[in-house]
Each structure stands twice: as structure tokens, then as C-alpha cells.
Design a protein around this nucleic acid. Structure first.
Lengths: 309, 309
DNA sequence: CGGAACCTTTGACTAAAGTCAAAGAAATAT
DNA sequence: ATATTTCTTTGACTTTAGTCAAAGGTTCCG
């Protein structure tokens, strides 16, 4: 688990968040949800929307199972709603070809028309709201919302210490390997990934960042030699980049390193990962000569840890 | 009614607003509403909250009538909910002393305790969210939310041409007079306000800005001499200042002046209203010699209108 | 192969949220 | 003073949203 930081949140900032939350949900948020549902109960509208976005992602339909977990609905309730939507002709329910227990739900043409119309209305509503503002004001608003959203996302992400053999850990490492493999001219061999044992217990640490339950970033710490830790596999999901998440993972790893009694941490990185190098420098890492001969490494960094005894 | 501006809203800005709206209402807004209701159905929780805020405003309770219009509830539904809350001991319902048809609802001590506890939880939740951010990030978030809120408020305000004798117009002018009277060392005499006839039809115009149905700002245009209009009584409610509303009223008045065939508009202002003077200058007004001998005027401005024939 | 785990459907409920209309009491308009 | 309007209450609904458990197919695992 994450260590708690000592500085308390100023009451004024808490009040500002609540004030904004109240204003936004009462005034603006209502725009979408209320008027948008039109003739459809909210539950059905939400379901339809979720089917649409799942459908768009994966091509041919979403399974009831996935909808259930995404919307947190009761199986019976969902089953009935799906049936209602099918009776109305907006979705088609079929048996999953790969697993006959599952049902896949996909939009029909009529369903797509309805979604499109809903989107048209929502856009018109939003445009109507923005219309009274001048262009510079709209630009300012857009920028402010983007900033707020970025920071709120970051705030909602939690970083957890997990076992190096845990499924989420391996999933992150697989994604990391695939990602890196595509960027390195020489590819990447999975056998170079840390072994679960290296990053567990006294030997090291493995952190995974979760956004709404999904693993979105990771980072590993292992023992290089007595008193020296090595940071490896700092990776952030493409959808969660530019939030400042890598820095948080790094900070977590450094805290863990201090807790493990390391005085110094080292890491290596590849020439093509220029953003990563910039980040390490900005976080207090200094370039050092090669401490190990890795196939994939061109640059080596080190940081002396302040908190170490 | 407001003239529509010609420039259309860029699709990217509409998408940004909708993206933010979706993210915020699903993720953050849920924080408050869901968990906050605790043991209470949402409808009751909302009602209790509305009673609290109405109570805090006006001292001794809110009428059912007002609650009904604020929350948009059915009379029967509201009556029953109020009764439920009374049975639970969190509110007290009494007959309005001034109008025996009305019922006033006020929180009991137990009700106040519950609200307080709810606030405590909501604050803890918000603080927990902000806690993961660093201080500079929190400051940035707070600033971004304040900007977004200011602009969204401004966007939600509509400016309408109203009859100078309309109730909202007179209410604004009364507030204006009281406001000005308190700021001018010599006070202010209501007989100096424009007459309804001066600002109606061909003679002039009167605009009122509405936020959620409440009049929040006004401005008048009258005929000074043929081809010359005079702008008077530009006023913004204290709760709506620093939004840029005065500029919008001014722009509306100028548009009306062009439509009335005025080539130029003039206005006078008092020495103590320094912000107003700065605004007029920033909006293209230039200082001129006195064009009329008003008791309350120290500075006179004029603007030649571009759109005039 | 047999049992455990999984996914969905169905039946039988409940609580919340809301609608509609009739009726009574009080205030306002004529 | 009488009619009309306003505000609330009450009874009699309906729809939405959701829960729980039993049961019937499928797939997975040993």
C-alpha cells in the first residue's frame, strides 16, 4: 500500500472541489443525463450507451458478463433489460461462438440510429451552452477542463504494492514488453523481464497503478548488490500517459528502496526513450557509466536516496 | 432576445465539454451523491439538503412551495416526503404565519446533526481524493476548477430584452439604487432612475441577465438626442461579479444602439466606480467633457459605434 | 468422466420515485 | 360575498430499479 504523505489537504481546496462538484453536477451534468434519456429509462439508456461503446471497441458486440461488471448490475436485472432492448429492436442478443455460456449483445441499425440521434442532441446542447461565450473564453474553458480532468484522473489512480507473480503484474509486464519491443529497433526478448522472486519480499518490490480497477502502470525494484537497488520496467499504459503517473510510480519505488535499506538506486534505459531520460534527470537522477552490460541499455542513471540511514 | 453570433462553436470544443462532463459525472460526481445518501433514499437526501440551504438563507425555514419549484417535484410526492422526514425527527413542519396555505419546513437539531455528519463525510471523501496529489498539483486543480466554473456560469447566463416596466427590471433597478446609494458618499435618489417609457420600444432598450431564472444583472439604453444613445444603470448582482457579465450587458446594449440607429453612445459614471471606468475604457470608450450636468457624475464617456449606418 | 465453477434465465419479491386527480382550506380578485 | 386561484393533503395508481434464490446449460479441471 501507499505510504500516506504528512501534509494535510487545506480546507479551502476541499471546499473548492466540493463547490465545483456541486455546481457541475446540478447545473451542467444534468444537461446530458436528464434530457438525453428522452423516452428511455436511465438504466436502459446507460446500458445502451455501454453496449455502443463496447461494440465500437471490439467489433462484434459485448458480452453480458462484461456489461455486468462494467455497470455493476445484477445478472437477473441485466438479463431482463437486455431482453427489453431486444424486444424494442435496438439490440440483437446472440450466443458467443467461443463460449456458449456467454451472450453477446450488439446494436442493430435502429440502435445505432438512436445513439446517433442522442449524440446529436447532446452536441447541440453543449454547443448551445458554449455559444454564448467568446472564442477566447471557450478556449480558456476547454483548457481549464482538460487540466482539471488530467489532475482528477491522476488523483483517482491508486498505486499498490503487488506480488511480482500476480496476474496484474504479469499483464503489465507483457504490455511493457510488447510496447518496448515495438519501439526498440532490435525488438525485446521477454526473458529479460524480472523474475517474480526478484521483486518480492526482502528482495525488491513491484507496484501497479490502478485506475478504476484496471492496471495502468507498473514499476519494479530489485536488489542489484547489497545496499544498491535497481529500478526496472517503469511503464505507463498509452491511455494514461502525460498525467504524471510515471513520477508517482518512481516516487513509490524510491520509498520502497529506502524501506529496503538501499542507499542508492540505479537504472538503465534505451536511447530511443528520450522522454524517460528527461524524467529521470528531472527527478534527481544523474547519468553514470555502465554498471551492467545489458543488450537494451545505452544510458545508466543513479540516485542517492536522502531518506536512507 | 439575444442576437445570435455568427461564429459556430468548433466541434473539438463541444467534444471537450462532453468528454469532461462524462468523466466528471461518472467518476467524481458519484462520490458525493452515492455514498453521501447513506441510509437515506436519494430523494429524501436531496430534499433535506435543499431544506438546509434554504433554511440557512432565510432564517426560519423554507416553504413547500419553494422546495417544489426548486426541485421540480410533484406536490403530493413532496408532501409525503416532508411527512416522512418529520416522522424521523429531522425536520419540523409548521404553518406559515403570513399565509396559512403555506407550510414552512425547518431543520430540527437532529437534522442539523445529520447534515453536519454528511458534510464531514463528503469533506473526508474530497480530501481523500486530493490527498494523492502534490501541493502544486492541488493548487493547479483548484485554479482550473475555478476558471471552469466561472466560465460555465457565464455561459449559462442568458440576457433578455425586457420591458422597462417589467417586475424583473424594477427589481434590478431597486437593487442597483440600493447598491449605488451605499457606495456614493452623497447617497442616491431613486427619482434619478430611468422611466420605463424611456427604455422601451423605439426610445431605448432594457436588458436583464438571468441565471437559473433569477435576474442577476441589467443595463438600460435611452435616447439622449437624435442619433445619440445613453447607456445607464449597468449593474451586476454581487454574487455574479467578476464573471465578465457587465461586458456582455454592454455588448448587448451596443447592439441595441446600432439597431436603434444611434451612431454614438454616451454614459456617465461616478468617481468611486473605478472598476466600471476601467471596463468602459477597455471596451473602447473614450473620456469626453460633460454632456449633461448630473449630480452623481464625475466622468463622461463616449463610443462611436462601428456597425451604425 | 464427474464435479466444480461459470453464465444466464426465470420467478418472486421490495423499495424508491413519481403521476394523477379529487378535495379541502386559505387567500385574492371581481 | 362569491368566484377563482393557490397550496397542500390524500388515495390510488405506475414505472423504475433493484435483490435474491433456484435452476438449467456450458466449460474447466483433476
Amino acid at each position: 500500500m501507499e505510504q500516506e504523505h504528512s501534509e494535510p489537504v487545506p480546507a479551502e481546496q476541499v471546499a473548492a472541489l466540493r463547490r465545483f462538484n456541486r455546481y457541475f453536477t446540478r447545473r451542467i451534468g444534468a444537461l446530458d443525463d436528464h434530457y438525453l434519456g428522452q423516452d428511455r429509462p436511465l438504466g436502459e439508456a446507460r446500458l445502451l450507451f455501454e453496449i455502443e461503446s463496447g461494440d465500437a471497441e471490439s467489433g462484434d458486440g459485448v458480452s453480458l458478463r462484461e456489461l455486468r461488471s462494467r455497470l455493476g448490475l445484477d445478472a437477473g436485472y441485466l438479463s431482463r433489460m437486455a431482453k427489453t432492448l431486444e424486444a424494442q429492436g435496438v439490440v440483437r442478443v446472440s450466443v458467443d461462438p467461443d463460449d456458449n455460456r456467454l451472450r453477446r449483445v450488439a446494436l442493430t441499425a435502429a440502435g445505432r440510429v438512436e445513439i446517433k440521434e442522442q449524440n446529436r442532441r447532446a452536441n447541440a446542447l453543449a454547443a448551445g451552452l458554449l455559444d454564448t461565450l467568446s472564442e477566447p473564453q471557450r478556449t480558456e474553458l476547454t483548457r481549464a477542463m482538460a487540466t482539471a480532468q488530467r489532475l482528477l484522473r491522476l488523483a483517482a489512480i491508486t498505486v499498490a504494492l503487488v506480488d511480482g507473480a500476480a496476474q496484474d503484474a504479469r499483464a503489465c509486464l507483457d504490455a511493457y514488453a510488447a510496447d518496448i519491443g515495438a519501439r526498440f529497433p532490435e525488438g525485446f526478448d521477454k526473458s529479460d523481464l524480472v523474475r517474480p522472486r526478484e521483486v518480492t519480499g526482502d528482495a525488491g518490490a513491484f507496484f501497479v497503478a490502478y485506475e478504476e480497477g484496471r492496471p495502468m502502470a507498473c514499476g519494479a525494484l530489485r536488489t542489484l548488490e547489497p545496499g544498491v537497488g535497481e529500478i526496472r520496467h517503469v511503464w505507463v499504459h498509452p491511455d494514461a500517459r502525460r498525467l504524471g503517473l510515471a513520477r508517482r510510480i518512481l516516487a513509490e519505488l524510491e520509498r520502497a528502496a529506502v524501506a529496503h535499506g538501499f542507499d542508492v538506486v540505479r537504472l538503465d534505459t534505451h536511447a530511443v526513450l528520450t522522454e524517460a531520460q528527461a524524467m529521470y534527470r528531472a527527478c534527481g537522477y544523474t547519468e553514470i557509466p555502465a554498471y551492467v552490460d545489458h543488450v537494451y541499455a545505452d544510458h545508466w542513471f543513479e540516485k542517492r536516496l536522502a531518506g536512507a540511514r
